[in-house]
């Protein structure tokens, strides 16, 4: 594609920081503004940035849409499974069964952290799959 060397280099250098910020938003969703969806979108945009600056074929080699599709479904299935765990452990659906830590610490939200991670994975994969589908419509989503 026709991106200049500057754009390619800067996108490459920015990529890990965007991913880090995405993970930060996901993992601190229960403490500060952010959460699974927002962090997931940031992770997705990191992949979209790579696809825009480099060619989409090159990006798809690293992040295959097959795997992303699979990850998306795994995210939602994890969420439902965590909900079921509540039932299996004798509480009700989606209820918290983890010990609550000290407020303000990262492990203080009980199940919230795990929910946010599951949603983050789903949204990140979903956003990038939607982008792939829009760019190269193949008729089979």
């Amino acid at each position: 594609m026709g991106s200049s060397k500057i754009i390619k280099t800067i996108a490459q250098k920015l990529f890990p920081f965007i991913v880090l910020f995405g993970f930060y938003l996901i993992s601190h969703g229960h403490l500060s503004p952010g959460g699974g969806f927002q962090g997931g979108v940031v992770l997705g945009t990191a992949i979209i940035l790579l696809a825009l600056s480099h060619s989409i074929e090159q990006t798809e080699k690293k992040f295959r849409s097959r795997w992303l599709n699979m990850l998306e479904k795994l995210g939602i299935l994890t969420l439902i499974f965590l909900g079921f765990l509540g039932i299996l452990l004798g509480y009700s659906f989606l209820s918290n069964f983890l010990p609550l830590g000290k407020p303000g610490q990262i492990a203080s939200g009980g199940l919230m952290l795990l929910f946010n991670i599951a949603i983050g994975i789903k949204v990140a994969a979903g956003v990038s799959v939607i982008f792939y589908a829009l760019v190269r419509y193949r008729g089979e989503i």
Binding site: I80, I87, S92
Partner: peptide
Amino acid sequence: MSIHIPILIIISPLLAAFLVLLS
């Protein structure tokens, strides 16, 4: 298990929906 029946009625097709996509 019997008290959880209302949510199981909703979740069973939803769970199957995502499993259908995988199989």
